[in-house]
Amino acid sequence: MAMTARPDLPAEPGQRPRRRRRRSPVTWARSGGMASVVFLLPLLITFGFFSWLPVAKSLVLSMQRTNLVTAAEWVGLANFERVLADPLLWTAVWNTTWFTLLAVVVGFPVPVMLAVFIGELRKSRGLASALAYIPVILPPVVAVLLWKAYYNPGPDGLFNTVLGWFGLGPFPWLQDGTMAMPSIVVQATWAGFGGTTIIYLAALRSVRTDLYEAAEVDGASIWRRVWHITLPQLRGIMLIMLLLQLIGTFQVFTEPFIMTGGGPENRTTTILMLIYNYAFIAGDYGKATALSLMLAGVLSIVSAVYLFLTRTWSKT
């Protein structure tokens, strides 16, 4: 095959390697480089103003004590020390970790299984997808308030009424230190599985159909097809979804904030609720941003470790 020599290709054997010629700024501008900058500017300004500036501000704020009126006082790492000295921090860390574990164990397989199930349907696949997606359409606060009512601990609560028909309960749901967090996880899973299911369904479309046909010819059962074809083909997207779920669940706030207010006895107080309390109840923005940065740091490390450990698994 004929090849055309290009100046930036490696030199032929025997010749001295030629250094890549750098373009001067003028050449770069004349060849249309400014256009890319112009196109990039709105994005940079938007990101700069709404994303990077707040991040930079929170970095500064975490080392200040301020009432947002008078000149802020630089306190170095004192805010971080105060956060670490808060006895409620470790309760919140444990609660958040517990929520994340439960949410992953309960919430991760549900959309995968549902997507596979819907994918196997011959009829009404669209209807099934729409039904699965309905909880996502409800505004989160409305959904949480509804579930809060369903979890009414009295015998006349919705769940307790239904369970009462079978001679079970009434259960204290959110009122009991042991049951409260799993109850919240069930609601969060219900609220979130629809969106994830749709993503898995889209990913399923990329699975090669000839593999299924070959498996069918070989007499593979539906479970073997799912186990040996579908799941391996989905693992890339599953990896990403698991990571997103880990990050998302670590930042859980709305559900415990509305359903339990962190109770009973701080058993559902999460890290984000602590940040909220520092900022809006105590008006201590230094402490709130310090804890926010600590959380962001931990999540970054967790994400990096996760990606490192699973880097071979993600490659098909």
């Binding site: 500064v60 704020l61 301020t66 009126v69 008078t70 000149a71 802020a72």
Partner: peptide, 16 residues
Amino acid sequence: AMMIALAACGADSSTD
């Protein structure tokens, strides 16, 4: 952008 942001923060902080 970060430096501008930091400078902006400094300016805020010096409000009398």
